[in-house]
Each structure stands twice: as C-alpha cells, then as structure tokens.
Amino acid sequence: MDKVPDSSPEKMDDSELLEMTQQDPVQAKLLKQSLEHLASGLAGDTLKEMAQEVISGRLGLREAANVVAYTEQAVEQSAPLAERWASMSESERAALAAEGRRRLDEEQRQLEDEQRTEAEKRSSAKARHDGRGWSLY
C-alpha cells in the first residue's frame, strides 16, 4: 500500500527563532509576532507570502532572507522607517527606545507568569497523582 503524504502543514520550528535571537525567548516571541503580522498582508503580498512560508515551516527564516524578491520588498518597506528614524531628534529616539524596553520588560513578565502558571499546573497534577502515601500492603 502506498503511503499518502501528510498534507497537514508543518509549523515553524521556534528553535530557529531562539537561535537568531541569541536564545532570548522574549525576542523570539516578538519575532514570531512580527512574522504573524506580515502574514496578515500588512506589508504587501510578497512579505505576506514570505511570512506564511516561514510560519508554515516550508521555509526557514534564514532561507527566506536569501530570496531576492523577499529581501527587496523588505528593504523597500523599511525605507520609510529608516527615513523617519533619521529625521527624529535624539530625545525622540530615546523615548522610542525607552518604549521598546518597556515592551520587552512587559513581554518578559508575561512569559515568566506563563511559565510559573505552567509549572504550578504540573506540580499540582503530579502531587495529586504521584502515588505517594498509598500502598498495596
């Protein structure tokens, strides 16, 4: 009997995002959110396609960066942001950087809360079902 290929889409391997962000789970989460925003079409069809390919796992992010059409579109889309940054005063840049740090700090707190909640769930489930205090004899 021939094996039918699995048609269900794979998901992106988050380990690549962690590697690209120097094992920073908060930065990796934000990178993934950025890809999800791009996949919505926010930056045009080309970057939408790229993000969907990466999120689906069909293409790695590093591989996508080597696709000329994707990089050209990314450069084109980022040009207005670079111009805006260049036109900002030092105080505006500092305020934007401070806002970025606040967002990173908030994401870090949320991640720690999620991890703590998961750890508590695992420990309470284990405590109820670990078999200690019960004997057949």
Rank of each mutant, 00 (worst) to 15 (best):
M1V: 14
M1A: 13
K3D: 12
K3E: 13
S7G: 00
S8H: 07
S8L: 12
E10L: 12
M12P: 04
D13C: 01
D14K: 03
D14N: 08
S15G: 11
E16R: 01
L17G: 05
L17N: 01
L17D: 02
L17C: 03
L18K: 08
E19L: 05
E19V: 03
M20N: 07
T21Y: 07
Q22P: 02
Q22E: 13
P25H: 07
Q27N: 15
Q27F: 15
Q27E: 15
A28P: 03
L30C: 09
L30Y: 06
L30P: 07
L31F: 03
K32W: 00
K32F: 02
Q33C: 07
S34C: 09
E36I: 04
E36N: 09
E36G: 05
L38A: 15
S40I: 11
S40N: 14
L42A: 03
L42C: 02
A43D: 12
G44N: 10
D45Y: 02
K48R: 10
E49Y: 08
E49I: 04
M50D: 06
A51G: 09
A51D: 04
Q52T: 09
Q52G: 09
Q52V: 04
E53Y: 07
V54F: 03
V54A: 02
L61E: 04
R62K: 13
N66W: 07
N66P: 04
N66E: 14
V67Y: 09
V68L: 11
A69W: 02
A69H: 10
A69S: 13
A69F: 05
Y70R: 01
Y70V: 08
Y70D: 05
T71W: 10
T71R: 11
T71K: 12
E72T: 06
Q73K: 10
A74R: 02
A74K: 01
V75C: 02
E76T: 08
Q77I: 00
Q77K: 07
S78A: 07
S78D: 10
A79H: 14
P80C: 08
L81Q: 13
L81W: 15
L81C: 12
R84D: 15
R84N: 13
W85D: 05
A86N: 06
S87V: 00
S87C: 01
S87W: 00
S89P: 08
S91W: 00
R93F: 01
A94R: 06
L96R: 13
L96M: 14
A97N: 10
A98Q: 11
E99V: 05
G100K: 06
R101K: 04
R102N: 12
R102D: 15
R103S: 08
D105Q: 08
E106M: 10
E106K: 10
E106C: 11
E106F: 06
E107L: 02
E107M: 04
Q108S: 12
R109N: 05
E112I: 02
E112M: 09
E114D: 15
Q115T: 08
R116V: 01
A119G: 04
E120L: 14
E120W: 12
E120G: 08
S123M: 11
S123I: 05
S124P: 00
K126H: 08
K126Q: 10
A127K: 03
A127D: 03
A127I: 00
H129M: 02
D130K: 01
D130T: 05
G131L: 13
R132W: 09
G133D: 12
S135D: 15
L136Y: 11
Y137A: 10
